[in-house]
């Protein structure tokens, strides 16, 4: 169910070899020099913050009820990257999370499983073993997550280690320091290098939008990551506040929409951090639906990086099925 298929060409092999040394046409030459890349990124249309917020306010007022809500809840569950990124994580907690990922609601076999389990790289092997045969992906954060403050060699070793442990999705962080000082080509080259180190694993590029601050920066960083070969652009590590917000997600969805229109390549989006309620998740799905379009409404192209969100989705799902609210003891603790 969650095999990475290409929606534009469903018959294409699931892991098609890609060239990562230069951006896709028609942007092949924009990374030829620092100056050219800066001119390109700064030449992207600006984002008016007030207008972006106004748009998300209107979309957040959509009223999603009954059948639409049921569809949205199941879809959201299937898009969850169930995450634990604690210093105190153990093989036991990861195995427990994996069990929950396979069967989010133990009392209801019709409940879909989640998209992936997201852990630190050293625990990817435990997750891989616990999820064998389920189709659930193993995502590992890497590249000196969450700060990204390490030498490139260390970051690449981190990625290779996670892949070797069994991760088939890598969530990397960009070098925000380099980005904010305008060294865009350095950031780009690092993403390209990580992309290569990933091998067949899918690459999600975390922009850490809470540190980039402006929506102009979010748009530029999204384009940078997409040009460098990202499979997903992801908002946040979850360790910085604010994490995922609707305006940030709007700008990223506009970026992937425009990028596909220009290059034919579809890129996924993953808001992460701060999405805790079903209402938040449904608002994001509405945003996806009315910004990037229905093609993005699948776990192949949209994910939620979350932990507590899943339980609220399950509670709302039970409410829809039974007609009454249960309580926190009717869903499992993580």
């Amino acid at each position: 169910m969650i095999g990475m298929t290409n929606l534009l060409d469903p018959h294409a092999p699931a892991t098609s070899p890609r060239t990562v040394d230069e951006p896709p046409a028609p942007y092949g030459d924009v990374t030829r020099s620092d100056a050219a890349f800066r001119a390109f990124l700064h030449g992207l249309p600006g984002v008016d913050q007030v207008g972006a917020e106004a748009r998300t306010t209107v979309l957040a007022s959509r009223s999603i009820k009954t059948t639409a809500k049921a569809w949205a809840i199941d879809t959201a569950i299937s898009m969850v990257d169930l995450t634990t990124l604690e210093g105190a994580d153990t093989p036991g907690t990861v195995r427990s999370l994996a069990a929950k990922a396979r069967r989010p609601d133990p009392g209801d076999a019709t409940c879909p499983q989640v998209a992936a389990v997201c852990v630190y790289g050293d625990l990817a092997g435990v997750a891989r073993e616990a999820l064998a045969g389920t189709g659930i992906h193993v995502a590992a954060v890497a590249t000196a997550f969450p700060s990204g403050r390490a030498s490139r060699e260390v970051k690449l070793a981190d990625v290779k280690d996670a892949v070797a442990n069994g991760a088939d999705e890598i969530d990397m962080v960009i070098d925000r320091g380099a980005f904010l000082t305008g060294r865009y080509l350095d950031v780009y080259e690092e993403v390209v290098a990580v992309r290569e180190a990933c091998g067949d694993a899918h690459l999600k590029v975390i922009l850490e939008t809470g540190e980039l601050v402006t929506l102009d920066n979010v748009r530029r960083a999204s384009w940078l990551a997409m040009l460098a070969g990202a499979d997903f652009v992801k908002t946040s590590t979850g360790k910085v506040s604010p994490a995922a917000t609707l305006p940030v997600c709007l700008v990223m969805l506009e970026a992937v929409r425009d990028f596909r229109a220009a290059t034919g390549r579809q890129i996924g989006v993953k808001p992460a951090g701060g999405i805790r309620t079903t209402k938040d998740a449904v608002r994001h799905l509405v945003l996806v639906h009315e910004t990037a379009g229905p093609d993005w409404l699948s776990p192949d192209w949209f994910r939620f990086g979350a932990s507590s969100l899943l339980n609220d989705l399950l509670l709302q799902r039970q409410k829809l099925r039974t007609g009454h609210y249960s309580g926190p003891d009717h869903v499992t603790v993580d």
């Binding site: 009223s63 999603i64 639409a68 569809w71 949205a72 879809t75 229905p294 409404l297």
Partner: peptide
């Protein structure tokens, strides 16, 4: 006409 979206908003009058 594009294929119908899987996300059909139920009536919310």
């Amino acid at each position: 006409p594009t294929p119908p979206s899987p996300f059909q908003y139920a009536p919310a009058p």
